[in-house]
Design a protein around this nucleic acid. Structure first.
Lengths: 261, 261
DNA sequence: CGCCCGTTTGAAATAATTCAACACCGGTGG
DNA sequence: CCACCGGTGTTGAATTATTTCAAACGGGCG
């Protein structure tokens, strides 16, 4: 973290709690996971394409994005990640990583060995469901990105991206909020399948429509309803409401087992 | 299945075994999952957008695709699924479905209650890892689709789609193989973010290049290497090689079996 | 100050869309 | 049996969104 306090996994827990419910034991187990802290400079890589690393990575503070490069050297940004997000989970089950992850700001991270995650999941099935659920949400967001680059024009794509990042960072949105904006226009282009030049022109149009502000290193949303409309954004795919499907049914069994064991 | 034999979940097991290793007990548990068989006519829906259904769905035979519709009525196809694929898994952990699934051919399916899956996963953690792994692969494929529609031109997009479908259906590819092709040109457009008209012209170019054949209801790959080159296709993202990461550590049985051969 | 990175602007080129018409083909009903 | 029909594939010409290339601008920083 930016402070000199010793870092904790609290951001991970509060992030998971946006979509899952934990018992006190489970929460404590999550916070007690062993990890190695690290600082990543803006532009450096948390995980590289083809990397067979043995740990995943929690963003304690900062921002990073996933990307894939294609032959001609251009790249596609696949997702943006913030404080509390767990990255590189697939590595524990898939042997190697099919994309890279790069810091968009100086970031503070915690590396957790995959083995630790897999052990914890066996001991606490509800944590396993929560992490599986995060993987499912990740897939859901990826599908919405397919729709974004596949079906929408430049204005909608960029508005949609703004909406997603805003919705994930601000709990209850209202007009005139300003959020930290981590991407350059070129990178917005990489995320939306457009050129930086066209992103520039389209953002000017969004500004002229009074939807967003004119800052360079931040994003001010002047008209939240209008921006959602412009991007055809509906937050459902983020699954930000706590889902307990499949949990309650097992808590009882878990308790019994806890008693028996 | 097309025969009048009573259906089994064998296609699911053999599909999972492409990426995971099971003990005999685990395999038997998978095959013993209770399910309700069903027949879906081509064009009908297995699962609808917004559906809160309580079961997931295995394709025993046939073919289906996931899709999302956007406001103007057009739609984006998000993935194609074949025999053995497990669909709608997220429903058990996410409460509701953010996309629809439609049959592209008359298909035979097995509906499995989510509760059954979640119970099995607690009893057999290795099955849980296998299903989680499938979810991770699904996310990986979705990311590659983002790259496809975001960074590649029409020729590459279509060639890449052909490669993916072929690679998933044929174990060892060689030239002049013909595979069942489930999509119309219009639907190829929905999958690649192009119009049907442009798909038509681009497919003619692919045919003229000698990469694919000229059939309408099938796909003949005349030049596999050339088609991969044209689509910048590298099969790694499909994670089709068995991954045992995280398994051996927990499953002495697997290690023993590996040793025993 | 000069430099670098990111943004801004302009004009020309191009990939893909749109719209409209026609060909094809299997199925269905007279 | 033929005629018709709807869905799919094919073709052409005009239009448009986006890219490309090139140059200039601006601000932060050593």
């Amino acid at each position: 973290m930016p402070t000199n306090d010793s870092p904790t996994l609290a951001p991970l827990l509060s992030n998971l709690e946006a979509r899952s419910v934990f018992t006190r034991d489970e929460a404590e187990a999550l916070l007690a996971l062993p990890f190695r802290p690290g600082t990543i400079e803006s532009g450096s890589y948390l995980i590289c394409e083809g990397d067979p690393m043995g740990h995943c990575c929690v963003i304690l503070d900062g921002c990073a994005f996933r990307y894939k490069t294609v032959k001609d050297g251009s790249r596609q940004i696949l997702g943006i990640h913030f404080r509390g997000d767990l990255l590189g989970l697939g590595l524990g089950l898939l042997d190697w990583c099919d994309h890279g992850i790069q810091a968009a700001r100086q970031s503070y991270v915690a590396y957790i060995p995959h083995r630790v995650i897999l052990e914890t999941v066996v001991e606490f099935p509800n944590i396993g469901r929560a992490l599986w659920r995060e993987t499912l949400v990740e897939a859901s967001i990826a599908r919405e990105w397919i729709v974004n680059v596949g079906q929408r024009d430049a204005r909608k794509r960029i508005a949609h991206l703004f909406c997603e990042v805003a919705a994930r960072q601000i709990e209850t949105m209202r007009d005139h909020v300003t959020i930290d904006w981590p991407l350059t226009q070129e990178q917005i282009g990489d995320a939306t399948g457009l050129t930086g030049v066209h992103v520039n022109r389209t953002m000017q149009a969004l500004r002229a429509s009074g939807l967003i502000g004119a800052e360079k290193r931040a994003l001010t949303i002047l008209d939240w309803a209008g921006l959602q409309e412009a991007g055809e954004f509906h937050r459902g795919y983020l699954h930000l409401d706590v889902a307990t499907a499949g949990d309650g049914h097992f808590h009882q069994a878990d308790s019994l087992r806890a008693v028996a064991g």
